Amino acid sequence: MLMRKSGRVWLLAISLSLSLSLLTGCTGTFSLKKPQKPVQVVYRFDDHRWLELKGFNCEGELWFVDQKRGIRSQAMSQFYRIFTKPYINASERYIAVPGWSISAGVLVSKDYGRTWNRAPVNFKGEEDDGSDSPAYDNIKSLTVVNDQGFLLINQGHIYMSSLPFDDPRLEPGGPGIDYTITFRGREIAHHINAVRPGARSTWGLNYIDPRILHRLVDQYYTNFQNLPDKVPEVKNYRGWTKMQCDLNAGL
Rank of each mutant, 00 (worst) to 15 (best):
N206D: 11
V195K: 09
I208A: 02
S201Q: 13
L205M: 10
T202S: 06
D209G: 01
R186I: 12
T202A: 04
H157N: 11
Y207A: 00
I158Q: 02
P172M: 09
H190C: 15
G156L: 06
I188Y: 03
H157V: 08
R186G: 06
D166R: 08
G185D: 12
R196W: 03
R186T: 15
A199I: 07
E187H: 12
D209Q: 02
N193W: 03
H191I: 10
D167I: 05
P164S: 08
M160I: 01
E171T: 11
S201A: 14
S162K: 00
N193C: 06
V195S: 05
D178H: 11
Q155H: 05
I192G: 05
G156P: 02
P175T: 07
D167E: 08
G174Y: 07
F183I: 14
Q155P: 01
G174F: 07
A199W: 02
N193F: 07
R184C: 05
P210R: 06
R169G: 09
G156I: 10
H191N: 10
N193R: 08
A194P: 01
A194T: 05
E171C: 08
G185K: 04
S162V: 00
A199L: 06
G174D: 06
E171D: 10
Y179V: 07
R184H: 12
G185N: 13
N206L: 08
S162P: 01
Y159F: 13
H191A: 14
D209V: 01
S162R: 00
H191S: 11
E187K: 15
P175G: 13
H190R: 13
G176M: 04
D167A: 10
G174M: 04
R196Y: 03
W203K: 01
